[in-house]
């Protein structure tokens, strides 16, 4: 199990490093110097590849040492958890998209309406929080601390 994970990790890091090196191809140079903005990304990419090799070696080593662990218990079922994971990530993306359109109050209420049930709260609680919390945050961030929160569709009603 661990070896497979280490191989995936090593491959992912190596892929990232190679992508970085390829992306630095077109970078300009500092006049009269053999390198430029590409120097650091390349050093970092080189280091990443080395550490990827290290991680894979560690995995191979654990394979030899840990043959006894072969009968480890199977991974727990995570179907529900995986759904919640994706849902929370989607909420963040949704908030980023909707914030400028709907404005802060509606977007925040929407996030709470969805997030409370995801984290195990009742629908009633969700509605209550969606109704109250945005105004509290509005007060602290907008009124008190002068953070410019977008009004979106509510602009005509802004205060």
């Amino acid at each position: 199990m661990q070896l497979r994970r280490d191989l995936i990790v090593g491959a992912a890091i190596t892929a990232l490093a190679i992508a970085m090196i390829i992306a630095t191809q077109g970078f300009p140079r500092i006049r009269a110097m053999p390198y430029g903005p590409d120097l650091f990304p390349r050093i970092i990419a080189g280091g990443l590849i080395l550490s990827a090799i290290g991680i894979v070696i560690e995995g191979l080593r654990s394979l030899r040492a840990g043959a006894a662990e072969a009968g480890a218990p199977p991974a727990p079922r995570v179907t529900l958890g995986a759904f919640a994971f994706v849902a929370v990530a989607a909420l963040v993306a949704g908030f980023a998209l909707l914030l400028p359109l709907l404005g802060f109050h509606l977007a925040a209420a929407l996030v709470l309406l969805c997030a409370v049930p995801i984290f195990g709260g009742s629908l009633l609680l969700a509605v209550f929080m969606a109704a109250v919390v945005p105004f509290a945050l509005h007060y602290v961030f907008y009124s008190l601390m002068r953070v410019v929160l977008p009004w979106g569709v509510l602009t005509p009603y802004a205060w």
């Binding site: 963040v92 709470l112 997030a115 709260g121 009742s122 961030f141 953070v147 929160l149």
Partner: peptide, 20 residues
């Protein structure tokens, strides 16, 4: 505060905080 209240609040605060 119960998790069902705290976690959504942290989520919202985290996003507003970053935006701020």
């Amino acid at each position: 505060v119960p998790r069902a209240i705290l976690m959504p609040l942290i989520l919202l605060l985290a996003m507003i905080g970053g935006f701020a």
